[in-house]
Design a protein around this nucleic acid. Structure first.
Lengths: 186, 186
DNA sequence: CATATCATGTAAGTGGTTACATGATTGT
DNA sequence: ACAATCATGTAACCACTTACATGATATG
């Protein structure tokens, strides 16, 4: 699943410009499981347009570049459905946080505490954000139905589980004695 | 955190060849939060060697290329500690599975069920693997101490939470009626 | 008066992956 | 016989990120 497919996915909720797609990707629920920059989005949209998967409408604006609003064509919709019916690639997670925790014994206790604190704050923020969105945020209206609810619930579950684990287990990590002599392993 | 740092991290548990690092990365607990291919590992090791962060010892073998066993130098250890004390980059997750679930309404019920079944099987496998390793697997002896236990426990917690969520919520997703008319959103 | 938001696009660089080249040994 | 495991390395390729170019309008 490349950025092109991701653009089709976002556009399936309604027409949008490249700029709006970027915003949807970093503010909406997509942010949880995907990411893309302008340098990836704009060329992708241009290529999707050449392939006939999206239609473009230029809305001229004063003072800024014309806003190009893209919308899914029937072909684009079929292409999205086709891509969604392939084998899902295995999840790819890259986490500096877990790497640091794995090597907690090499960390100064100050840094260890700071990193965990930041993580806890971030998790609480994400949870608050998800709950708030579910309640009344107008931006969330875009995403309704069983699928988005399921995916957001999954995100919520995982964040909550990690937060609970961190809060209950961080003491063990922080109280652990430093190894008596480095290089004495095994 | 690039592949170079990752190599240093693996080598901090003891000397290893490029091949063994790859195995540690895809079989050990690192697999949960990082990944790397030979094409990334071998050049990284060569560069680490040039930088003086690892020492190399060639063990000649009959019939195969000499096995080059690398080990962390004091400089390499310091470099690892230094890297571990930086700001952790935000987690990067890329999940085709969640993207598919987000667009569950575009999926055939057969594919939707197949994908969820495969995910459930995979999660159960991961959990079994983590529990087995904790019990008696000799390969896990490499990783001991509070850090690895914490990181593995975190992985276990998250997998278990996702599995429970999937099993309790999949019915809602699968029973959801198809939208009456496509394109009638809003 | 500086910073953020809106808005599109390109070019250079990067951090990898995939495929290739090579080949003995062991297990099925 | 065939596949898997052990073992290292290179080269071509790729998808993406970062930085640049441009600039009006609104907000604090």
């Amino acid at each position: 699943m490349d950025v092109k497919t991701l653009c089709l996915a976002v556009l399936s909720h309604g027409p949008a410009s490249g700029y709006e797609i970027k915003k949807a990707l970093e503010e909406g629920p997509y942010a949880y499981f995907y990411r893309a920059s302008f340098g990836a989005i704009y060329p992708s949209l241009a290529q999707l347009h050449r392939s006939g998967f999206v239609a473009a409408e230029s809305r001229s604006q004063v003072g800024r570049p014309d806003k190009r609003v893209y919308s899914l064509t029937p072909d684009g919709h079929r292409e999205l459905v086709r891509a969604l019916h392939g084998e899902p690639a295995p999840d790819y997670l890259r986490s500096d946080f877990i790497l640091m925790m794995f090597h907690a014994d090499l960390l100064s206790s100050a840094h260890r505490r700071a990193v965990i604190d930041a993580r806890v704050r971030w998790l609480r923020e994400q949870l608050a954000c998800l709950d708030e969105a579910r309640a009344k945020d107008p931006a969330a209206r875009r995403y309704h139905g069983a699928g988005p609810a399921f995916a957001c619930g999954l995100g919520r579950t995982i964040y909550a589980a990690e937060l609970a684990y961190l809060e209950s287990s961080r003491a063990q990590l922080e109280d652990a004695p430093e190894p008596p002599l480095k290089g004495a392993a095994e």
